[in-house]
Amino acid sequence: MLPPVIAGVDGSAESLAAADWATREAARRDRPLRLVHAWNWRPRQEDGGPGTAAMGVPPTPLSQWGRHQARRILRQAKERVRAVAPGVRPYDQQVEGPATAALLKASGEAELLVLGSRGLSGFTGFLVGSVAQGVVARAIRPVVLVRADEEATDEHLPAPGGRPSILIGYRDVVLGVDLGDPCDAVIEFAFEAARLRGARLRAVHACRQPSPLRLGPGEIGLLDGPRRAEEWHGFLSAVLQVWRDKYPGVEVTETVTEGRARSVLLRASSGAGLLVVGRHLTDRPAGPRIGPVTHAAIHHAGCPVAVVPHE
């Protein structure tokens, strides 16, 4: 069986938006769709936990209640899926245990995992809960975070007059490229996402003005601003050339901008349909971490964010 696109659902608006997005992505990739709900039963003594049976008190069937809630939540999500794409036949799974651990286990056999993040107003960005953040930090497969108000029309360019439409072409896929450590898995994910959508791919690299104590590779740090950017642009073109050859139908633009990577990437993703960033799969003494650029992307980008883990 082909690896499925998995959506984690808990009945919230953001998880239902994630299920909608996952449905469209499963159809684009011609992959099965799986809806996963994790519930955690931790009985207290007064609820029939250990010790109550010895006192002659029958246990309260909280596990039955949890399974009933799971069925209700999964049924609601499946109804949304059928409305989004009648041809997609999702299958569902309910698991007992901590949500982060359950979703991580499920994601190990997925094409990608889709989770929700609740959009907030103003400049405060998105509220990425502890479950989503824990999954992003530890997953070995790509994870896509989708905001609560994301709709199908948000993936597409507006119709004339600015009206939302799903009949116009897709918005750009934006790829953040770290030329100090370019990763094939991240680049390939972005090219494939652009190909599936018939969208343009915008590859973005942020370069910093070197300090006297830290020059760039070779002698790039000794060049003036315009020449330095030109050299970085040449590096970016060289890194992407093999993928241009592999995906000749994908239109690609390359941008090198001086500034902090997180700020450059967030500006570039404005108006995009998808932002693709990477995360190192490294074991640290303090445990898995989300890098500062990826952290900024999942909290502040105005579009769905795909976090692709890599060595």
Rank of each mutant, 00 (worst) to 15 (best):
G125H: 03
E96P: 09
V276L: 06
A148G: 08
P309Q: 06
A22W: 01
R244L: 13
S165I: 00
K78M: 15
L223T: 09
R260E: 15
R279N: 03
E150H: 15
V5I: 03
D224E: 13
L222A: 14
G273K: 01
L112M: 11
W21Y: 06
G176K: 03
E192H: 07
R29I: 06
V242Y: 03
Q45R: 10
I290W: 01
R208A: 12
H205V: 08
H156G: 01
C207E: 15
W65S: 08
V308G: 08
A101H: 12
H299M: 03
V128N: 03
Q94P: 10
R171V: 01
A297H: 12
L2E: 14
V36K: 00
A7Q: 02
R82M: 15
F123G: 04
R244E: 13
G161E: 03
V131C: 10
D149V: 05
H280E: 12
V5R: 00
E109G: 14
E230M: 05
G291I: 01
H280P: 11
W232D: 03
T23P: 04
W232A: 11
R72A: 13
E109I: 07
A297R: 01
A27I: 11
R267S: 11
R284C: 04
A203Y: 02
W232V: 09
T257P: 03
G216W: 08
L104G: 02
F123D: 09
R147I: 00
A102C: 14
R82Q: 15
E311T: 09
A193D: 07
V143K: 00
G51A: 12
V264K: 02
L196P: 06
G11E: 06
P304M: 02
R72G: 13
R195P: 06
P3C: 05
S269Q: 08
V143M: 03
A85L: 10
I140Q: 10
T23Q: 02
R227L: 10
Y247C: 01
L113S: 05
K246M: 10
D154Q: 05
D92M: 10
P3I: 05
R279M: 03
